[in-house]
Computed example of a mutant assay.
Amino acid sequence: MPRPLVAVGASDPFAVLRGLEAALAGGPALLPVAERTPALPTRPPADVAQRVALVVETSGSTGTGKRVALSSEALLAGAAAADAALGGPGAWVLALPTHYIAGLNVLTRSIAAGSTPVVVPAGHFDPAGFADAAAQLVTDRSAPRRYTSLVPVQLARVLDDERATAALAAFDAVLVGGQATPVTLRDRAREAGVPIVTTYGASETSGGCVYDGVPLGPVHAAVDDGELLLAGPMLAEGYLGDDDRTARTFTERDGQRWYRTGDAGEVVDGRVRVVGRLDDVVISGGEKVALGAVERIVRGVPGHEGAVVTRRASGEWGEVPVVVTDRPLDLDAVRTAVGDALGRAARPAEVVVLDRLPMLPSGKPDRRAVRAIVDPTA
């Protein structure tokens, strides 16, 4: 029997919270909708399969739009595995949009813990607003720990504010994900006493399911032809209205159902290391260059933790890496650092400085917008 799908505006986190509570209890499935983001080209269905409790729409920072269908079992399995890894259920500060899986995870884990999250005011992330929200957080015996989840750019802003840093240091765990966290930013946080936990996952895995490189309890990781695969009870049902994409992305292997992440990675002694996107490779002068590897080196430069490395067509080389950042950066120094680590072909051709980097509401860089600025003809 189909289950009705109800859209709720994500600008009201508590309306999303109520809708998610109902969905997890067997009520109508929930579709959180962001009012100020482009709609997907097709309308969502009026109902979904009975197993589906939550649908997450994502246009992605580089790919095409999709609707990820998640069951109650997957969401709650992910929450239980995370609580076990973090030391128990807790009370949360919500600083992320609730139409993205990381924000929805905060709500799911709050529901599972029987706690009510404190919400940071919507709009441009403000460290003072975060500190105010942290001051309101109340824990109890059933959920005595304090948690929050941030993207790297939010963490960097908090660390620039003394009061917000002190508030963050009082948490039991600060999850940081959505994109790779630069080593320099991690070091800054830990020196300030902030207990960060780097996370890796996707909407298709009910959010973060690898913490500090270690898969959570029921999660399995493997590599197939250089691509990182993940398995476990937290996997999505698939994509609404796109059976072909579902079949390509979720595969059977070794008697288990696996999610093909599209990321290049490796698993060594049980630890996961993500190298970059498989499709984020340029051929420059006949040599393959992983833009993610170049970006990690650039983000290691203090003050440039949010820099983006994109591609641009070149009549001489085919394609070249280009650094896009929001403050001056010495091109020669970056070319030397990248060349020493990755070889001559990986050296960026240019540094483009913008007043402000294009960002998605999730806090991730809008890579398609960045690419359009650097190479309008692409």
Rank of each mutant, 00 (worst) to 15 (best):
T249W: 11
R43W: 03
Q154T: 07
T42C: 06
D161N: 14
M234Q: 14
V223I: 11
A22G: 10
G178Q: 06
S72M: 02
I111V: 14
G114F: 07
D280H: 10
R43I: 00
R141V: 14
P28S: 13
P218R: 10
P182Q: 05
V153H: 13
V308T: 04
G232P: 06
V324E: 00
Q179L: 11
A39I: 05
R109H: 05
R257T: 15
A122M: 02
R311G: 01
V267S: 12
S362N: 08
V183E: 14
L230D: 07
E287W: 09
V309H: 00
A313L: 13
F171V: 06
E319L: 08
L185N: 05
L331N: 08
V301H: 12
K288Y: 05
A23S: 09
L31W: 01
P89T: 12
E237S: 12
P89G: 08
C209T: 11
D263A: 07
V274L: 11
A91S: 15
D332P: 00
R260Y: 09
Q136D: 12
A133Y: 00
G318L: 12
T64S: 14
G103T: 07
T310R: 00
L86Q: 08
G201P: 03
A25V: 03
W92L: 03
D326Y: 06
S362K: 03
A22S: 15
A231I: 08
G217A: 15
V308D: 01
V6R: 12
A192M: 07
G303R: 08
R188E: 10
R335Q: 15
A85L: 04
T325M: 05
E21T: 11
R299Q: 13
A341D: 11
S149L: 04
P376D: 13
R296N: 06
T42N: 06
D132A: 15
L76I: 10
V214E: 13
L159V: 09
V322E: 02
D263Y: 11
T198P: 04
A231T: 12
E21C: 09
P45E: 10
D254K: 06
R141E: 15
R356P: 02
V268E: 14
L278R: 15
G265E: 07
P121W: 00
R299Y: 01
A46I: 02
D225F: 08
G217M: 04
P97G: 09
T184K: 05
R186F: 00
A15V: 00
G303I: 05
G177H: 02
R67T: 03
T246D: 02
D212C: 09
A134R: 05
T251Y: 04
T116R: 13
S284R: 02
G63S: 13
H220C: 13
I297W: 04
V68A: 02
V294C: 09
S115F: 03
L76H: 04
A264K: 06
V194A: 05
